[in-house]
Amino acid sequence: MKPPAFHPAQIPLGLTLWSLWFVALYGGTAVACERLAAGPEEAGPAAINLGFLLFTLAAAAVPGTYAWGCWRAARLSAGRPSQERFAARVGAALHLVAVIAMLFIGLPLLGLPPCL
């Protein structure tokens, strides 16, 4: 599943994971509210937020480890072709962007009622 740290597929991978997480989060909260909140003016159980918060942390860990892997590979890459080092460096940065995007976009889970 995971491409080697120098593979150019690392470049789009991080934010692709972000997209999947984003769809799951947006769709998931909507479906959870439909199922768990009593009515359209009901705030819904806080467990929804907690669940998606944990999901967000778990999801962010994936590009997080990839970022680490790519970054290490980029540092130890003397002698490899320049585009491979480039892919690892840009890949590491974009994995990191994915982590930040997940955590930042997930922030509202901390403060807002899920279904209102």
Binding site: P12, W18, C33, A101, L116
Partner: peptide, 25 residues
């Protein structure tokens, strides 16, 4: 550039803030 390309797909509902979508979403 790549970040813009991806993240811009996560913005569409901001054209629909007035249609009554839950605050969290």
């Amino acid at each position: 550039v790549l970040t813009t390309g991806f993240i811009s797909f996560g913005l569409w509902v901001h054209h629909m803030f007035a249609v009554g979508i839950p605050m969290l979403a």
